[in-house]
Design a binder for these strands. Structure first.
Lengths: 336, 336
DNA sequence: TCCAGCAAGTGTTACGTATAACTCCTGTCG
DNA sequence: CGACAGGAGTTATACGTAACACTTGCTGGA
């Protein structure tokens, strides 16, 4: 608490305005129509302003048994993707009188340990990315209303899920590369266990399986430029015919792959076409600009918050995946 | 709160263990040495585990008058810089039993409006980046202990400040470019009003003023790849001799400048040397890799949290700026 | 023998708020 | 003229926790 004097309470305001504490609560809680006269209400408001009164949230939360605060559990914020998810969620939340507290999994890769020890705030609900899924047990233990982002709709133990249509995105990537004439593919996969990445692998393999004469190899890498660089370098140094198309699980991996390709003395897209997924700012910062799948992160966050509000009010959350779209840029071309 | 049954309280645990609520509080609060016998304490712990008891934080906060939670106010998390600041701050906080709640200024550029309406958590203190300085008035109004990051040590109204030695970083950049033989400079400045950017402009100008025959022009841009691209394009299209060195306020601006330079048919570093500041992952994702100033964001966050803890305990915070270092890569070379 | 001192607890209270239940007063209608 | 409806408040209480002050039984020293 502040040094020196203590913060004014509703009782202090009441005394200053010459009314009871209950009247202050009524007026400031906007529930005074027909209970307090207008002049008195004004006196209370003036006194509150004068004293710089701020309600004690701990007391209010205790009294009401709810906090109007929700937790957003995300992997580390090393790209703007989850920052935008937060923006969308926070906007919707604010419109409904809720606040959003962010819990970024500390090291980016490892799962969140105990979001409730760290985010000391008491919570009404949780929105969690499947990339931080290990927090799930603690959350379920608390019986908190839960919405999962990009998570297996079947395996989420009844929690509501909000998903991007990643499968469709991967299909579009595959179709685009196939149409260009590519037949030999390398998949640079994120080596984080998460449903969203499983979908990429499954859908890519399934789409290519429909086309006779295609080849698909897969390598894993941690989601970082360094990690992708090393994995791609190793793959390019491997014996055998070089693939002509490199499908990356996200834009950051693609940026790392670019570096490996340059170091190997090859060029994008002449020697190797590359695709990403996310459409971060990074996608247009690298040269050539990256063909990638655009995800609407803000809409994702909005939808997540809407779903959580629905759960909190006992309504069924909206169904259906969020659409994504392929953005074709300079990193893909027909094989030589 | 959870649907169905209500959460167990310390009184429920007491009843299950056959002791008083006070005993439960003592045992679980780890203050029972010499007050409760070991067997009884164990019974209480078992009962708590059995019932899945979690203390009600609102009640605890109300009782104790503090929350062991601090707020970190940052500009939007569109780069990993503030994500790392958070990581550092959260690590130190956790070691002292504190939690950190993040308040990212919604739109990235605009200042935070009311961090306390959104971050509903009750707070013991605040760490704020100077880039979100408009929140200051609300914070001061609440008399909350405050630490400012990268803020004017003189003008911060007595709040503790923790700064990176940006001035030294800019000096190193200037000296490096001068040593290479550059005399005609362009400064791509972030057009956000913030002390940290004022320092860059001031120190660059002052260093160049020491060397006769140097020229310095400045252009402003919003901190985004698009913004930097447009500003740099305009500058390159301007009449008069082209500068040979482009000093950017941060790496993101440098990435945008790269694009403008490519579009103008020029090359880095042959036609134009470019420098950044931050040493984000982006710095090595672009080609050629960027000469930039490395900031230790995690150490920055740690230092910020240490300073806040010091303020909370009435100790004087550690003085002195955090060192930075120039990282020379491929984007700088002697002028042709 | 008696009291001090300690272990092992229990009873009670306060934190600041929101609200249900109550009181008092004034004007109006049957 | 009496009763009653509503306006304008007030009083009292509970939310769950932490901690202060107290009790009880026992042991050991004078």
């Amino acid at each position: 608490m502040a040094r020196g004097s203590t913060r004014p309470t509703s009782r202090d305001v009441a005394q200053a305005a010459g009314v009871s504490q209950a009247a202050v609560s009524l007026v400031l809680g906007d529930k005074w129509r027909g209970r307090v006269s207008e002049p008195t209400a004004q006196r209370v408001r003036d006194a509150a302003l004068e004293l710089g009164y701020r309600p004690n949230l701990a007391a209010r939360n205790l009294r009401l048994g709810r906090t109007r605060t929700v937790l957003l559990v995300v992997p580390a914020l090393t790209t703007e993707f989850f920052a935008e998810v937060y923006t969308g969620a926070a906007r919707v939340a604010a419109a409904h009188g809720f606040g959003v507290v962010l819990y970024p999994s500390p090291e980016g890769v490892g799962p969140a340990r105990d979001p409730f020890a760290s985010a000391q705030a008491a919570l009404d609900g949780v929105i969690a990315s499947s990339m931080a899924a290990d927090a799930l047990s603690a959350i379920r233990g608390d019986q908190l209303p839960l919405v999962m982002l990009d998570s297996d709709p079947e395996g989420s133990l009844g929690a509501a899920t909000v998903n991007l249509d990643i499968a469709d995105g991967i299909h579009q990537v595959a179709d685009h590369l196939l149409a260009l004439g590519h037949r030999s593919f390398l998949h640079l996969a994120a080596d984080i266990p998460s449903w969203t990445f499983e979908v990429r692998a499954r859908e890519l393999a399934s789409r290519l399986a429909d086309v006779p004469g295609t080849e698909l190899r897969t390598i894993g890498a941690p989601i970082s430029i360094e990690g992708a660089l090393r994995a791609t370098e190793a793959a390019l140094a491997a014996p055998g015919p070089r693939p002509t198309a490199l499908v990356c699980d996200d834009d950051k991996l693609a940026a790392g792959a670019y570096k490996a390709i340059r170091r190997a003395g090859l060029r994008v897209p002449d020697d190797l076409s590359v695709t990403g997924l996310d459409d971060l700012g990074l996608a247009t910062a690298i040269d050539p600009e990256l063909t990638t799948v655009r995800l609407d992160a803000e809409a994702f966050g909005e939808r997540g918050m809407h779903a959580l509000l629905a759960v909190l009010e006992g309504r069924p959350p909206e169904k259906g995946d969020l659409p994504v779209s392929l953005v074709v840029r300079g990193s893909t071309a027909p094989p030589q």
